[in-house]
Nucleic acid binder design. Structure first.
Length: 276
DNA sequence: ACTATGTCCTGCGAGC
DNA sequence: TGCTCGCAGGACATAG
């Protein structure tokens, strides 16, 4: 499922392949749509707009749009895409077959199409004008936060460290896979109360979280479920998972069995020997 | 203010 | 083989 590294991969791919292209027209599917803004608002913002930037904020892809009306550049807007669990943004030839669960098609001036496909419909699409409230962009970026600020996030929190890592209001972009992987690398059990971690443990967690996210980005993300990048390519980081999805399998460090437990309704994987 | 839990949604795999 | 059932989980709503 798309977490920070996967969303970063998609955003980079989109920037590489679609920057400067113009959206000529937009088709949005019927049925309950995975939309935050209305279909009308989205179509109005996208049609005739040039893609002038793509960035990632947490798990959101932000597509910067620019329109000119009567030669005058109008105020910029942003198309915000959250992939949910199973969403993908794909750039395909216009004659490519339409995949099941395609919810939006943006026809590009270059002749290609940008399509949003999401079987489980946990994904969300929205548009906003520059200057609109951006209260959705809360939380700190895990790859930018200092060790000191990172440690401060967990002060006084009784919740398990695993849950705290998943809380997007604290850190944005960390999901179930990378929370488990970072905790294993930092040798911390997922159920430990966040506030009770030692300074050394928090320092280690900060270091390993950043490292695992960077390695995953370099590997094009983890293709669990149906994650693929804009060209439909899978990532490779799933082969380097040490705990996620490896319940019962031997720990790569100590050979003991990886355990699976449920924390706040989320599956959590760890090594009882290596993690304290 | 914080924490815990239920809900959404569909595909897939286990089990019979 | 063909069916049912439970699980997967990010964000949000709701309850405590």
């Amino acid at each position: 499922m798309p977490e920070l590294p996967e969303v970063e991969t998609v955003a980079r791919g989109l920037a590489q392949r679609a920057l400067g292209d113009v959206i000529e027209s937009v088709w949005i599917g019927e049925k309950p749509q995975p939309l935050k803004s209305s279909a009308r608002e989205i179509a109005d913002a996208l049609e005739g707009a040039k893609i002038v930037g793509v960035e990632r904020i947490g798990k959101h892809i932000v597509v910067e749009l620019s329109k000119s009306q009567n030669g005058q550049p109008s105020a910029g807007s942003q198309w915000i895409v959250h992939l949910g669990m199973t969403g993908s943004l794909l750039i395909v030839p216009a004659d490519a077959e339409m995949a099941k669960h395609t919810h939006l098609i943006a026809r590009l001036q270059s002749g290609r199409e940008l399509r949003f496909v999401d079987p489980r419909r946990f994904g969300r699409l929205a548009v906003r004008q520059i200057g609109d409230d951006n209260t959705w962009a809360v939380g700190r970026e895990p790859l930018e936060i200092s060790t000191h600020d990172f440690a401060a996030l967990f002060r006084g929190r009784k919740t398990p460290i695993k849950s705290a890592l998943l809380n997007q209001k604290l850190l944005r972009g960390v999901g179930n896979i990378y929370a488990d992987e970072a905790l294993h690398r930092a040798r911390i059990r997922p159920r430990r109360r966040a506030a009770l971690l030692t300074r050394a443990e928090l320092k280690s967690l900060h270091k390993h979280l950043q490292a695992v996210l960077r390695q995953a980005i370099a590997a094009g993300g983890s293709s669990i479920s149906d994650y693929v990048d804009v060209e439909g390519e899978s990532g490779n980081f799933q082969f380097r998972h040490r705990v996620y999805g490896r319940a019962g399998k031997p720990c790569r460090k100590c050979k003991g069995a990886i355990k699976r437990i449920v924390i706040a309704g989320r599956s959590s994987h760890y090594c009882p020997h290596c993690q304290k």
